[in-house]
């Protein structure tokens, strides 16, 4: 028959020789292999003490950014929600009232901003869609939780701390 790949190997069906029947040479060979492995580099990463490095383009948990004066950049335009292929983002807009200029940069802001981390596929399209540079993907991943609702991250989870408030 015409061989298809030339990778087929004939199975050796000769009766075993005495040395093979004794099994001891084979066992000795196997023990040599395992003994070598004792001195090999261990594959383990001792996780809490050591962490595996992420790639430089790693996309992790989202953060909502502030500007230099500590005001929220998000203007609740909804472009991130539109761009999101997993439909994980939802928001509610509100109008900035007089006297809140130190809190929100634009006249319209997100009163509620939620990302469902169970739906999110961490594609980073929201980051690309955002015209105000308000949403970024950080370098951590979502920690485990006991309940599904724990994975719906609100504004207080996403918003970075006010740099001015921290300075004090």
């Amino acid at each position: 028959m015409q061989p298809l790949t030339n990778r087929a190997k004939q199975v050796d069906r000769r009766p075993m020789t005495l040395a093979e029947k004794l099994y001891l040479p084979a066992i000795g060979k196997g023990m040599g292999i395992t003994f070598k492995h004792i001195f090999k580099r261990k594959a383990t990463v001792s996780f809490p003490d050591q962490t595996r490095e992420f790639s430089p383009v790693f996309r992790g948990l989202h953060i909502l950014n502030r500007d230099e004066e500590g005001r929220e950049r998000c203007t609740a335009c909804g472009l991130c929600a539109v761009a999101c292929p997993a439909e994980a983002i939802t928001m509610e807009a509100a109008e900035r009232k007089p006297g809140e200029e130190n809190l929100y940069r634009e006249e319209k802001y997100a009163a509620r901003y939620e990302i469902n981390m169970l739906r999110c596929i961490f594609c980073g399209f929201c980051e690309e869609a955002c015209p105000k540079d308000a949403i970024y993907l950080s370098e951590t991943f979502a920690p485990a939780n006991y309940q599904r609702k724990g994975f719906i991250y609100g504004k207080d989870d996403l918003l970075i701390p006010d740099p001015k408030a921290q300075g004090k």
Binding site: H37, I38, A43, T44, S46
Partner: peptide, 13 residues
Amino acid sequence: KVAAWIQDRLGPN
């Protein structure tokens, strides 16, 4: 420990 070393692991530490 021996089991771990032979299997390229660290063992109890």
